[in-house]
Design a protein around this nucleic acid. Structure first.
Lengths: 145, 145
DNA sequence: TAACGGCCTGTAGTTACTACAGGGTCAAGC
DNA sequence: GCTTGACCCTGTAGTAACTACAGGCCGTTA
């Protein structure tokens, strides 16, 4: 099958496929006489594997690792475990800092309404005060739930 | 003060300051006779404002907006409100998808231990099965809490 | 005079793609 | 025979927000 067909079946962009090939994630396919790439079912399986890993938030280096582990699965189980654990830890960390961020923004947002009567936006004032060196109230929020 | 001093007081990198200047976030300072940048206290306040906004997860375009709103605060309150609301919505969305991701990865991780006796890593097998076209169990998780 | 730290400009690298520019290939329609 | 259109090719530049040089100037100290 040609690249357009693989892109359709793998639900991704043609340019992305060429990118994966350049990055060594997708095996380089045979070429037709005219130079067009000629893919097999194996490439579709590879592609789906890559896209599935990506949809789980793994980066390309992680996907590369997993693909190389596939060559010798019985050896790699510990490393695979570790890789997934690392992902989980990273994402958990991201969630925590985003939750804090959300709380800080809510606080900032509330300062607007709190000082509306002053006909001056409390958000800007809070941000500007922080810049002036005063302790900002949004970042002084307790981290714990 | 020179760029190194501003960087120290603003707790960021010298290169970042030059970058902010290029991007029009930080006003271009006067120059000494030898071409060195010469900053004032105003620049430090500007920089702290920028860094504070950045630490709240705002992008440079948002910071640019806020800085321009500072020129006419009484006019801009509604827009500032909207900007912060947009940030909150975006971050909330991010948190939700990361929480789902975390759950999927936990599930994947558990498949490893579930099939350890088979001396074949369940993670790899689950990922590979998904690539083969089988319904993957990790993505079939219920989205709701 | 040489070494050192700081400063300058300008460019390239990071992630995972995306979006062209400029050109070749092939089948269908006039 | 010619054109149109969809598809393919390579190679390069863009995205966000910096970071990291290369190559060179300025000013002080040993």
């Amino acid at each position: 099958m040609r690249i357009g067909e693989l892109a359709k079946q793998g639900d991704c962009d043609v340019e992305t496929l060429r990118f994966y090939e350049r990055e060594g994630l997708l095996d380089a396919p045979a070429r037709e006489a005219n130079g067009y790439r000629s893919y097999t079912e194996m490439h579709l399986v590879q592609l789906k594997f890559i896209r599935h890993c990506r949809s789980l938030g793994m980066g390309l280096p992680e996907v590369r690792s997993l693909r190389s582990f596939q060559a010798s699965p019985e050896l790699a189980c510990g490393e695979i475990d570790q890789l997934v654990d690392g992902q989980i830890a990273r994402i958990h960390q991201q969630i925590e800092s985003l939750r804090l961020l959300e709380k800080q923004l809510h606080f900032l947002r509330d300062t607007c309404h709190a000082s509306r009567k002053a006909s001056e936006c409390g958000i800007l004032r809070t941000l500007a005060q922080a810049a002036e060196g005063e302790a900002c109230s949004c970042h002084a929020l307790p981290v714990a739930e």
